Amino acid sequence: MQIEIDIEDPRWDALDLGARAQAAAAAVLADQGIAPEGVILSVLGCDDARIAELNAEFREKPLPTNVLSWPAEERGAADPGVAPAPPGPDVFGEIELGDIAIAYDTCAREAEAAGKSVHDHVTHLMVHGVLHLLGYDHIRDLDAQLMEAVEVRILAALGVENPYEI
Rank of each mutant, 00 (worst) to 15 (best):
Q2D: 15
Q2P: 07
I3E: 05
E4D: 12
E4Q: 15
I5M: 13
I7K: 01
E8F: 03
P10L: 00
R11E: 04
R11L: 00
D13R: 00
D13V: 00
A14F: 01
L15A: 06
L15T: 00
D16G: 00
D16T: 02
L17N: 05
L17T: 06
L17R: 02
A19W: 03
R20N: 10
A24Q: 12
A26V: 03
A26W: 01
A27W: 05
A27F: 07
G33A: 04
P36V: 09
E37R: 12
V39G: 11
I40T: 08
L41N: 06
L41C: 05
L41T: 11
L41H: 08
S42E: 14
S42Y: 02
L44K: 06
D47L: 00
D47C: 03
D47T: 00
D48R: 03
A49Q: 06
A49G: 05
A49E: 15
A49I: 02
R50V: 11
R50A: 12
I51L: 07
A52Y: 06
N55S: 15
A56C: 03
E57K: 12
R59A: 05
K61R: 15
K61S: 08
P62G: 06
P62A: 15
P64M: 04
P64W: 01
N66I: 11
N66V: 08
V67M: 11
L68A: 07
W70Y: 14
W70L: 09
P71N: 12
A72P: 06
A72I: 07
R75T: 11
R75L: 08
D79H: 03
D79G: 00
P80Q: 09
V82F: 01
A83W: 09
P84D: 09
P84H: 09
P84F: 08
P86C: 03
G88P: 08
P89H: 05
V91M: 07
F92E: 15
F92K: 14
E94H: 06
I95Y: 03
L97N: 14
G98H: 09
G98C: 10
G98A: 07
D99Q: 07
I100G: 07
A101W: 08
A101F: 05
D105F: 01
T106V: 13
R109C: 05
R109E: 15
R109S: 15
A111M: 08
A113E: 14
A113H: 01
G115F: 00
K116T: 14
S117R: 10
S117Q: 10
V118W: 00
D120S: 10
D120A: 13
H121V: 03
T123M: 07
H124T: 14
L125F: 04
M126G: 09
V127C: 04
H128D: 14
G129N: 08
G129F: 04
V130A: 05
L131H: 10
H132P: 03
L133F: 05
G135T: 09
Y136M: 08
R140N: 04
D141R: 15
L142P: 02
L142S: 11
D143H: 13
D143T: 07
A144P: 03
A144K: 07
Q145T: 04
L146T: 04
M147Y: 04
V150I: 10
I154E: 12
L155K: 11
A156W: 00
A157P: 00
A157E: 14
L158G: 13
L158D: 14
G159I: 15
G159W: 12
E161N: 11
E161M: 05
N162D: 15
Y164K: 06
Y164G: 09
E165L: 10
I166C: 00
I166S: 10
